[in-house]
């Protein structure tokens, strides 16, 4: 990372008002709550499907909170979202395909 700024001209501000520290702390509290919920879910005695679903929902919410608020994708240029979500979607789609093919063979 460069230590000096090469651009004398002020940056173009695409971002709309960034949330302040207060919002960040609220997000962190939400993340902590969701983590606790995840861990509790992994201990209680429900059927595997319900537990798995619950954990996946918590995981997805945590993921989305960090990406949208801490990484500012919610406020930033949509091109960044396209770059990141493109890679993410490709990875999820392709590896679900691989895993379901392999599960079918192995079983």
């Amino acid at each position: 990372m460069s230590t000096r700024h090469e651009q004398a001209a002020p940056e173009v501000h695409q971002e709309h008002a960034h949330p302040g520290p207060r919002t960040y702390v609220e997000i962190a509290v939400a993340l902590a709550v969701l983590t606790t919920l995840e861990v509790i879910l992994s201990y209680i005695n429900v059927n595997d499907f319900a537990r798995g679903l619950g954990i996946m929902i918590c995981m997805t919410l945590k993921f989305a909170l960090v990406v949208m608020w801490f990484m500012h994708l919610r406020f930033d240029n949509r091109l960044f979202t396209v770059m990141f979500v493109g890679g993410l979607t490709l990875a999820v789609a392709v590896f679900i395909a691989v895993l379901s093919i392999q599960r079918a063979i192995f079983a």
Binding site: T35, S42, R51, G52, C58
Partner: peptide
Amino acid sequence: FALIYLLP
């Protein structure tokens, strides 16, 4: 954490 540790 979710996929490797928590999921049964």
